[in-house]
């Protein structure tokens, strides 16, 4: 189904929490363009779309549970998330892993971000560039 025709899984307030949490997971999202942020959230939504309804609800509950954290100073948020990432209860760790994974997917899955981190593969000329010993990307 075309992404434009899909009904979003995440509501506006859930998207806002996700964006705020993303600044803790990937700090550079704080200064990313609106276009990049929208692409990140859309990609997360796109991943949730085909998942079973229970998984969607679990993710929304996680956002709800972590939403209050985004009111804290950035340093505190990071400390708390680190604590939860290694929390003694496995289910909590799994939830944070899922959140991180989706944010990484939404951010590092973008072509513009991949270019920025010097990931510039070549479909046709990988071996040519290898033999020429030409490093990709910026100096």
């Amino acid at each position: 189904m075309d992404a434009r025709q899909r009904r979003p899984v995440l509501k506006a307030w859930q998207r806002r929490i996700l964006v705020r949490l993303a600044t803790c997971i990937v700090p550079e999202t704080a200064t990313a363009s609106a276009q990049s942020i929208d692409a990140m959230v859309d990609a997360v939504d796109g991943q949730l779309q085909p998942r079973p309804r229970l998984q969607q609800i679990a993710f929304k509950l996680l956002l709800l549970g972590l939403g209050w954290m985004t009111l804290l100073p950035a340093g505190w948020q990071a400390s708390l998330l680190h604590l939860l990432e290694a929390f003694p209860i496995r289910l909590v760790r799994v939830g944070i892993w899922g959140l991180k994974t989706l944010i990484y997917l939404g951010y590092y899955g973008q072509e513009s971000v991949q270019q920025r981190i010097n990931y510039l593969p070549s479909k046709l000329e990988g071996n040519v560039l290898l033999h020429a010993r030409r490093l990709p990307g910026r100096a």
């Binding site: 997971i25 990937v26 990432e85 590092y108 899955g109 010097n118 990931y119």
Partner: peptide, 25 residues
């Protein structure tokens, strides 16, 4: 692997994660 797959393979997040991902080469 590729950038997203690499990012999720790292245990952790935040500035140190971003610093490691900053130059894929």
């Amino acid at each position: 692997y590729f950038p997203f797959t690499t990012a999720k393979s790292l245990a952790g997040f935040g500035a140190e994660h971003s610093a490691l991902m900053a130059d894929f080469r």
